[in-house]
Write a protein that binds this DNA or RNA. Structure first.
Lengths: 244, 244
DNA sequence: CGAACCCTTGACAGAAATCAACTAAGGTGG
DNA sequence: CCACCTTAGTTGATTTCTGTCAAGGGTTCG
């Protein structure tokens, strides 16, 4: 792996507080590799041999059953994924594929497990990271069970706007079909949901969403910190999503 | 709290490996209390001041949004719940209420956080516990997104049978309305789902489920270790669910 | 330029929620 | 002990939501 990746990784909450020696050791065991788009990195059910870190690009976590498939999460730099399986030394519950060309770092999970036994600081960081992951999936499940697909779309738009500093317009950060799957619906249904939200303050132009009436949208979305996540990013500029 | 509770708690994976001194200290900070049925122990959104442990009885974790409500999990002795919120010192994402009269132990979350910083063994146990919780919610979400309600019911029945040692009959461990909510459907829909499964090897007599054709049921359920959980209990006798 | 592929739209079918009515069981209070 | 009330569960009728199938427009990429 590149030397210049290390500071980036070190910035992650998971690796920020561990001892320099342990960090170095972990990095020395790591591999880095670039993958083209649409390449399957991980197949669900296989043993979890590596913790993955996205350095560049985008990765989709998804799951399948019979002939169905659904997106569970979209991971962007710089973040880790499938930490829990590595810790448990258990099969991956989700598959992963690149959405676009991506650079990925892989840390052998046995080194990971050894490290949080040696380094109490790393153990605490791992606890925090896992607690975050857990709460994130709980929110996902709550959204699925408590909201209709139309409400999920509205809430998603409202949240993206909020992340972009209450922008009245932003560009969808992924393909619509992927977003639809993430939100638990078909692409057709997503398309119709957006259309039906025209009467509630949402317009769309290609990949750009324009909020024509924030109050109306908010009324449909019913934003809730316990589902959509806290407004930690409000006031910041989101990753190029602000505009126009 | 009762002195005789301690060995039970100590048996939990979360507390099994920590040092005796730290365990004692944690227990001394703990409260124990009995609650009647249908009492709200925790309200979502409130600060997570206590880790809870069910010693006796049954607890339902649920969430609400607007006027809707859904069950997220059912917790039985001896287990902890809402660990992640305590660790993060963040608001509970879920509410909790007793399903029946229950005895609950509460450990102040600040003592918990202090302890896993002091005791590396406890930190490792916490990591494992959280990873389990995470994977459990991921499975839940997968079931919701990949299966229809009828398939979820079939899979639930198949799994319960499997836990009870492939019993052809067992008694539902909770009210049908609660089970329906847990499986992400209305009671009416649950009732109809069971009825429609008659043609696929499932019969019902009150709270008792009788599997009349395991092969047919299995074909509908499509059991999957990555959704329903590993068959760790296969071959054991489940908690009184075996029959007839 | 053609071949994919994404997105949208329409028509339809199926799934699930809602509303309403009814039964049965359990608990309460006279 | 019984009448009464409450509640869980079931069933039917209906509406709403969502997925499926099919077709067409637009874009990208080889």
């Amino acid at each position: 792996m590149r030397e210049e990746d290390k500071p980036e990784i070190r910035k992650l909450l998971l690796f920020r507080t561990m001892s320099p020696e342990n960090f170095e050791r972990l990095m020395q065991a790591a591999y880095a590799h670039s993958f083209p788009a649409q390449l399957e990195l991980i197949r669900q059910g296989e043993p979890a041999d590596f913790l993955h870190i996205v350095m560049e690009g985008t990765v989709e976590l998804f799951s399948g059953w019979r002939d169905r498939e659904t997106a569970m999460a979209v991971v962007r730099p710089v973040s880790t994924f499938i930490l829990a399986a590595c810790i448990k030394d258990a099969p991956y519950l989700m598959s992963a594929r690149t959405v676009e060309k991506s650079r990925i770092i892989m840390i052998p999970s046995k080194d990971l497990r050894a490290t949080f036994r040696l380094d109490p600081e790393f153990a605490v960081s791992t606890i925090t990271e896992l607690a975050n992951c857990y709460r994130s999936v709980v929110r996902h499940a709550k959204g699925l069970k408590l909201r209709t697909s139309r409400e999920r779309v509205a809430a998603y738009i409202y949240r993206q706007s909020s992340i972009a500093g209450n922008a009245v317009s932003f560009v969808l950060p992924m393909e619509k079909r992927l977003l639809a799957s993430l939100l638990g619906m078909t692409p057709e249904n997503f398309s119709r949901a957006i259309k039906s939200l025209q009467s509630d303050g949402v317009a769309m132009d290609g990949m750009r969403i324009i909020i024509t009436n924030m109050k109306l949208l908010e009324a449909v979305a019913g934003p809730d910190a316990l589902i959509d996540g806290p407004d930690t990013n409000a006031g910041h500029f989101g990753s190029g999503l602000t505009g126009p």
